[in-house]
């Protein structure tokens, strides 16, 4: 005989008192501390979901994973050619730094975009899971973010490989390779991820109510990319025009990225403040919006 669980040979009841009360809510947030506690306790589920989603997608093709790097790499090259042509031909002095800037900019932007667009669809795509299991729903967008990070980090060595190669051909370039200011990079990447995660919470809710939100996002992110300091330097904006960097949730972070990775200097104070403000704002609004609506998901899926 095969039994599962504690089976018949262990008749002791593993009864731990655990009383839950389910009550109606009028767009109220649930008690946040128990919510985060439960979220934290079940983080393994989100991590595993991310890992298995990758596994399911790349089960058949080993080349599949390579595309995660090749895709943004090719895209960067195309943008680099476009930018070079628009500027009236190649320039020996700035060519490599333009390429490096576009590379790291696209890698970072793609990271944020993946968090946002996958996260936005995570609730509507999680149909069965949502209808059959009770768990903090924020675990689904969180899982998307984890997965996006898994796809993002290999692009960092790719970046350095390209820069290293570039340095061989243009030893004069000022792009830093080993520089103390890179210590800012983990914070910048984390800030970008958290801001994007906060935004993905908002879009995930919107996508439950309006199913074309995620489609709309694909168009908006294109425009968003052009509006971010990825294909152009933050210094190109002067005076009050600089506000365009700061009204963009990813703007200050991407400007800081440019300064650390290409100029080899620390991010400016206003960039750091802008980044901090957007992190807090995105998380606060995202968490409120998401947790106050999430119990509505099951009746609207």
């Amino acid at each position: 005989m095969s039994t599962t669980g504690s089976g018949g040979n262990k008749p002791k009841r593993s009864f731990t008192p655990l009383i839950q009360v389910f009550e109606p809510h009028k767009a109220q947030t649930p008690p946040l501390i128990p919510y985060f506690k439960e979220f934290w306790e079940r983080r393994a589920f989100a991590l595993e979901l991310a890992r298995f989603a990758d596994k399911a997608e790349y089960l058949e093709s080993r080349l599949g994973k390579a595309w995660l790097i090749l895709n943004p790499l090719f895209l960067s090259l195309i943008y680099f050619l476009l930018v070079t042509v628009l500027r009236g031909g190649p320039n020996k002095d700035t060519g490599l730094s333009t390429l490096a800037h576009i590379l790291i900019g696209i890698f970072m932007f793609y990271f944020a975009q993946n968090i946002i667009s996958d996260g936005a669809q995570s609730i509507t795509a999680g149909g069965r899971l949502i209808l059959n299991q009770a768990f903090p729903r924020a675990l689904l967008p969180f899982s998307s973010a984890v997965r996006a990070f898994g796809q993002f980090w290999p692009t960092i060595p790719t970046y350095f490989a390209v820069v290293l190669l570039g340095k061989v051909f243009y030893p004069k370039t000022h792009i830093p390779l080993a520089d103390l200011n890179y210590l800012w990079a983990p914070f910048i990447i984390a800030a970008l991820a958290i801001t994007a995660f906060g935004l993905s919470l908002i879009f995930a809710v919107m996508n439950v109510y309006f199913r074309d939100t995620s489609k709309l996002l694909t168009y908006t992110t294109r425009i968003w990319l052009y509006g971010s300091p990825v294909l152009w330097k933050p210094e190109m904006l002067h005076g009050w025009h600089r506000i365009f960097i700061y009204i963009n949730p990813l703007g200050p972070t991407l400007a800081a990225t440019y300064h650390v990775w290409i100029d080899g200097v620390r991010p400016s104070n206003s960039e750091l403040i802008g980044t901090g403000v957007w992190v807090v704002l995105a998380m606060a609004i995202g968490t409120y919006f998401f947790t106050s609506r999430e119990r509505d998901f099951a009746v609207r899926i």
Binding site: I19, Q20, F22, D296
Partner: peptide, 13 residues
Amino acid sequence: GIMPPTSGRIIVN
């Protein structure tokens, strides 16, 4: 605990 009550209450122990 998957569907929230529209009205009323459920207590689960």
